[in-house]
């Protein structure tokens, strides 16, 4: 499109808030009770990270890689492609990014030293807290906002909590892949936050603040390591 600078963010908002939130209600209705399974899988990853086995140090990384790859791919196919893309053509460009993230997460979980989870430090603790909030508190947001509970965004079925939980858990991880695995979840949080902001929804600040927090903490983790080389 020519003269991009003449467009405002709300020129690209193609749908109403009502239509948007009903996407999640339709997703939840169609897939119930899968929400329980995806949330349990997310909590299992958290537990595996919290109680790493000395005998199988790579186990949490493998569980993390398998579960996260599955939920990223499933969210891309079931929500982005099937429900969101029909009302927002820009989302079609996000679908390959979600599948790429799924592939990267799987690869990082399978290769030695991809994502290694040790005892969480302060940064990792903040990441874990963010992940647990994404798993348990994010679906409860309709209770605060006044939306129908059926429109809850659940980890593994909705992109925002999936990205936030993934980003939070990556803060606990050590390994060479952090800089590769973080950009897509953070970019999604930024994109979704801006969309919600354009919709005039106060919830916009949750993905935006999550992305900012994770980015800032990731920098503190990555920069000293780079500087020390």
């Amino acid at each position: 499109m020519s003269e991009w600078w003449t467009y405002r963010l709300d020129d690209f908002l193609l749908f109403s808030p009502r239509t948007y939130w009903r996407l999640f209600a339709a997703q939840n209705t169609a897939l119930w009770p899968l929400q329980l399974a995806t949330t349990a899988a997310g909590l299992a990853v958290v537990l595996a990270i919290l109680r790493p086995s000395r005998r199988a140090a790579l186990w949490p990384g493998l569980v993390f890689g398998l579960v996260m790859a599955a939920v990223w791919a499933f969210t891309a196919w079931s929500f982005l492609l099937q429900r969101y893309a029909p009302i927002n053509w820009a989302v079609a460009y996000a679908v390959p990014a979600f599948f790429l993230e799924a592939g990267l997460l799987l690869l990082a979980g399978l290769v030695s030293g991809g994502t290694v989870f040790r005892r969480a430090d302060a940064v990792g603790g903040a990441g874990l807290a963010l992940a647990v909030a994404g798993l348990l508190l994010y679906p409860a947001l309709p209770l605060v906002s006044g939306r129908p509970l059926a429109s809850a965004e659940v980890f593994g079925l909705a992109p925002d909590p999936t990205a936030i939980v993934t980003a939070g858990l990556l803060l606990v991880a050590r390994g060479r892949w952090l800089a590769v695995l973080l950009p897509i979840p953070l970019l999604w949080c930024l994109l979704s936050g801006l969309t919600l902001l354009t919709m005039g929804d106060g919830q916009a600040w949750l993905p935006l603040a999550s992305a900012a927090l994770v980015a800032a903490l990731a920098v503190t983790r990555l920069v000293p390591r780079t500087a020390g080389r």
Binding site: L13, L14, T19, R22, L23, R83, I87
Partner: peptide, 9 residues
């Protein structure tokens, strides 16, 4: 514009 973009709902 916007009003008829309701997807498959």
């Amino acid at each position: 514009w916007i009003t008829f973009n309701v997807g498959d709902d």
